[in-house]
Computed example of a mutant assay.
Amino acid sequence: MDEKLYELILEKLKQINEIRLLDFDYGQLMEEKPPISYPAVLIDIDYPLTQNISTTMQEVRILVKLTIVTKSLSETNHLAPKPVRSKGLEFLRLRQKVYTKLQGFGNEEFFPFERKSMRTAQIRQGLKTTVLQFETSCHDDTASS
């Protein structure tokens, strides 16, 4: 089930041409020189709540955490010329594209995605990091196989 969900997310986000790397979040940003290309989206999947429907089926609430990482490319202050500032604010357009791709997305296995939060995180100098959290749910019957 995790692998199916991960592959679905990859397929949706691969449609955003600006993204240079999609990967599971293994803590790459904690390394001194993160081994990633920017902009990147690091993916994490959690099950904060499960509930039995039967002995071999559960309803699973799923949180998908997307960490969008971009390099600071240009100035964003009020003194910068508008074209320069616009380049520096590309990360805002990228996170909007990620939100738009996943909000409401669902299929026969997973209920529609719903954005639960969006926050910035200051992890390392020179990188702009936004964490988007989506929630979905599904019925997991993999214990019956």
Score class of each variant (00 low, 15 high):
Leu21His: 02
Ile62Met: 00
Gln103Thr: 05
Asp141Phe: 08
Pro48Val: 11
Ile16Lys: 10
Asn52Pro: 05
Leu89Arg: 07
Asp46Gly: 00
Ser74Tyr: 09
Lys97Leu: 13
Arg124Ala: 05
Lys33Ile: 13
Gln15Thr: 01
Ser72Ile: 15
Val131Gln: 14
Gln58Ser: 15
Lys82Phe: 15
Lys65Trp: 00
Val69Met: 03
Met57Val: 02
Gly27Arg: 14
Ala121Gln: 10
Thr136Gly: 13
Ser137Phe: 09
Gly88Ala: 08
Pro81Cys: 08
Ser37Ile: 00
Leu10His: 04
Lys33Leu: 06
Ile45Met: 03
Thr129Trp: 00
Ile53Ala: 10
Leu49Phe: 08
Ser144Pro: 01
Tyr38Gln: 08
Thr56Ser: 12
Ser74His: 05
Gln122Ala: 14
Arg61Gly: 03
Lys12Ser: 12
Lys4Thr: 09
Leu94Asp: 05
Lys12Cys: 06
Asp23Cys: 02
Val64Ile: 15
Leu8Ile: 07
Met30His: 12
Ser117Ile: 02
Val98Ala: 02
Thr55Trp: 13
Thr50Leu: 10
Arg119Gly: 03
Arg124Gly: 05
Tyr38Leu: 08
Val131Glu: 15
Leu79Trp: 08
Arg85Thr: 09
Tyr38Cys: 00
Ile16Gly: 07
Glu3Met: 06
Asp141Gly: 15
Gln125Arg: 11
Phe110Gln: 04
Leu127Tyr: 06
Ile19Ala: 04
Ile123Gln: 10
Leu22Asp: 05
Glu11Asp: 13
Glu18Thr: 07
Thr130Gly: 00
Asp25Met: 02
Glu114Pro: 01
Asp23Ser: 11
Thr56Leu: 13
Phe111Val: 03
Phe113Thr: 07
Glu7Ile: 03
Leu10Phe: 09
Lys12Glu: 15
Arg85Phe: 05
Phe111Ala: 10
Leu42Asp: 01
Leu49Trp: 12
Asn17Lys: 13
Thr100Tyr: 07
Phe110Pro: 01
Val41Pro: 03
Gly27Leu: 07
Ser144Ala: 13
Glu18Ala: 14
Ile16Trp: 12
Lys82Cys: 02
Thr70Glu: 07
Lys4Pro: 04
Asp46Asn: 14
Thr120Pro: 10
Glu114Ala: 05
Glu75Arg: 11
Tyr6Pro: 02
Lys101Phe: 01
Ala143Tyr: 03
Pro83Gly: 10
Gln103Ile: 01
Ser54Asp: 11
Leu42Pro: 06
Glu109Trp: 05
Ile62Phe: 08
Ser72Gly: 07
Phe111Glu: 15
Ile9Pro: 04
Lys87Gly: 03
Leu29Gly: 04
Val60Asp: 11
Tyr38His: 04
Ile43Met: 11
Thr136Leu: 07
Asn107Met: 07
Lys116Asp: 08
